[in-house]
Simulated assay, not measured.
Amino acid sequence: MLVALSVLWGASFIFSEVMLAALPVLTLVTLRVAIAAVILWGLVLASGTPVPRRPGTIAALAAMGLLNNALPFSLIVWGQTSITAGLAAILNATTPLFTAGLAGIFLADERLTRRRVGGLLLGLAGVAVMVGPDALSRLGSDLLAQGAVLAAAFSYGCAVVFGRRFKRLGIAPMMVATGQTSAAALILAPFALILDRPFSLPMPGAGVWLAVVANAAFATAFAYILYFAILARSGATNVVLVTVLVPVVAVLVGAVALGETVSTGQLAGMALICAGLAVIDGRLLGWLRVDPSGARRSL
């Protein structure tokens, strides 16, 4: 599920590049969450998923929409107008570090450990190695754009820790995804209409509209169903590991679909990311550990 989510979110960077050529930031993000909300409401009604009606639950869904969609989507897309996709990937990959710290403070079952921190830092180093020194050389320039992407990563970390409550409330992952995208659309729409004035812009071409719909349907609607399912099953820190997998997916898709060459540095970065994920997961280390008699422990 985590790999599938990384594929969907990896594709969203490509969609954003296409859309930014014809649409301003707030309009782009509003279309993404609004179309995703329409799709998800169709799935909710077709499947008979219970719709929460308690004011407290609705308020929690609205907060999730702000923290997990409206703020980070807008900040990342705005940041991409000034910095490279590679540098944005490195900065976005700090999400698990923020999440691990917040989860260690606020979630009793996800306390911060040396193994988890070590694995996160190893994965982040892998992202940096894979993206390469060219992107790292831009660190320090365009500070506002870089700060925006880091703020988005922190917002994601807050959202994923906050989102753990929905399992306790008995809210289905599809309903959480529907509620948060609906709230994000309602939050963003007035700003997009006032600041971007999209009705005064030229009509985008068919390619842009295809990217808008694909971004909403696959990289948002379906992706967030997976996201909340993983969050309910595996916890806050594990679900945001997707942010270190996204660059791997981007490189592999480029190699398979576009015939791009995979460099030695990219392969080394992927190896570091895989090692970091293995350290965080812990099961491989437990399997390799032996008892005093020399026999491997059972899982």
Rank of each mutant, 00 (worst) to 15 (best):
V149Y: 12
D291Y: 05
V240T: 15
L112T: 03
S137G: 12
D291S: 08
A59G: 06
G119K: 00
M64Q: 14
V149S: 15
D291W: 02
A177W: 11
A37H: 03
L107V: 02
A183T: 01
F106I: 05
L67K: 12
F73Y: 11
W41L: 07
L267C: 05
L193Q: 00
A63C: 10
S82E: 13
A172D: 01
G254C: 09
A62N: 03
G282M: 04
S155H: 05
A223Y: 07
A108N: 12
L299R: 09
L139E: 11
A125R: 02
G132R: 08
A145Q: 14
R197P: 00
V33R: 10
G48C: 10
V160G: 10
L75G: 09
S263C: 07
D109V: 06
A184L: 05
I14C: 04
R168M: 11
P24C: 11
I105H: 00
E17T: 11
R283D: 05
A85I: 06
V160K: 01
A172Q: 04
A216E: 04
R289H: 05
A223E: 06
A219N: 00
W78C: 03
A185H: 03
T30W: 12
I58Y: 13
G132M: 03
G170L: 10
E260F: 08
S293R: 12
I280M: 09
L210I: 14
A236W: 07
L143M: 14
A184G: 00
V239I: 05
L136Q: 00
A145R: 01
A219H: 03
L252I: 13
L245E: 06
L288G: 07
G140A: 14
L45I: 11
R32V: 05
V290A: 13
G126T: 13
M175H: 05
G235D: 04
S16G: 14
V3G: 08
R197L: 10
L43K: 08
P292E: 08
A108F: 03
V149I: 15
W9V: 07
L2P: 01
P204G: 04
A221L: 04
P55A: 13
A125S: 13
A275H: 08
A172H: 06
W41G: 13
M270S: 12
L144Q: 13
G254D: 06
Q180P: 10
G132K: 04
C158P: 01
S263D: 09
R138A: 07
F218L: 15
F154G: 07
L23G: 02
L112V: 02
V149D: 01
A257K: 01
N238S: 13
L285V: 11
S82H: 15
L252D: 01
V127G: 12
V161N: 00
D134N: 04
A229R: 06
V38K: 03
M175C: 05
L75D: 03
D196Y: 07
I225Q: 10
E260D: 11
A59H: 11
A236Y: 10
G254H: 06
L112H: 02
V248I: 12
N92C: 02
R32Y: 11
P198H: 07
F218D: 08
Q266V: 15
G205K: 04
V248Y: 04
Y224N: 01
G48D: 06
A184W: 08
A183C: 00
V7H: 00
A62E: 00
K167F: 00
A89L: 09
V213A: 09
L122D: 07
L193G: 01
G269K: 15
A275D: 14
L258A: 09
G254W: 07
